[in-house]
Simulated scan of single mutants.
Amino acid sequence: MRTQKNHGGGRKPWDRKAGDKKPWERGGKRPFKRGPARSTPRDRDGPAIIYGWHAVEAALRNPKRRILRILVTQNGEKRLQEFGIKLKVTPEVVRPEAIDRELSPDAVHQGVLIEAEPLPVPDIADIPANGLVLVLDQITDPHNFGAIVRSAAAFAVDAIVTTARHSPEATGVLAKSASGGLEHVPLVLVQNLARALLELRGRGFQLVGLAEEGETDLSDAKLKAPLALIMGAEGKGLRQLTRETCDLLARLDMPGEIKSLNVSNAAALALYIARRAARP
């Protein structure tokens, strides 16, 4: 069988021949335990693996995030020291390929990787009464979801509401794409999105769904706080029950030849408009 080489020239774990000893059976360290595939974000029900400088730095600086293990290269350790990050867990200094083996081949870890406990998961009742909320209706791509979390952090969104099912794990690719945003924007996980929207409405939130067929451009809509912006997956858009629950459907008019945006870009634009328009 053809083997794939890592940076150190050895075989990848999935290329071991039958009968080969595992690294920890030869005296090495046991790698992070990987649980079965989950249908709910790992931040709710299991340890998260976070890699990449910005995501790891934000997690290490977050007092609510309990760190279980830290892997760093020599350069990564030096960078942590230069930034004066106080660590409660002693880092394990390893070669880059040791971190490579914990991740998918295309992951860019920048010499740092941590395993951490889940963050506290708030309830809808914990969202500030005059807040700005982003509701995601079955957005499953971790790159898009992570980029949306990053924009949400930039625009001081009070919470992201999404379903416990049909959403990506709050770990790995999502955490890297969020670039530290997971530490600043709470994820509220619900079982039924329509019911959650009704609960938000009961708390006084205006429910504005983003849809191409919206009756008005978002920048012309009369927005008020508290406000919940609801976005659907690319292609599918908002589900029927979700759109029927909204108070208003709004669109984003594009002056150029291309009339639509990637969902993460659309979220950033919508949040910019909402922050400027919605007033208490």
Rank of each mutant, 00 (worst) to 15 (best):
G52T: 05
F83R: 13
D15C: 09
V72S: 14
V56D: 10
R42G: 09
R61K: 03
K17P: 01
E97P: 00
V93I: 14
E97A: 11
T73S: 09
I70G: 13
G46D: 09
I85M: 02
A18L: 13
A59S: 14
A55Q: 01
G84I: 03
P47S: 08
A55M: 00
R44F: 12
T40C: 02
K22V: 14
E57T: 03
R42F: 06
G19V: 11
I67G: 13
G10H: 11
D45Y: 02
R42I: 05
G9Q: 07
T3M: 08
N75R: 08
V56S: 06
A48G: 11
R66S: 13
A98L: 08
K64R: 09
G10F: 14
I70H: 12
I67E: 09
P23F: 10
Y51E: 01
E82K: 06
R66E: 12
L103K: 02
D20L: 02
Y51W: 07
L80I: 03
D100A: 06
W24D: 13
L68A: 10
D45H: 05
E25N: 06
R65T: 11
E82S: 11
K29P: 15
L71A: 10
L60Q: 02
V56T: 06
T3V: 15
R38K: 06
G27I: 01
I99L: 02
K86R: 13
K33T: 15
K88F: 01
E92D: 15
P23H: 08
I85V: 13
Q81A: 14
K17W: 15
P96G: 07
P96M: 00
I99F: 03
R44W: 11
E77D: 15
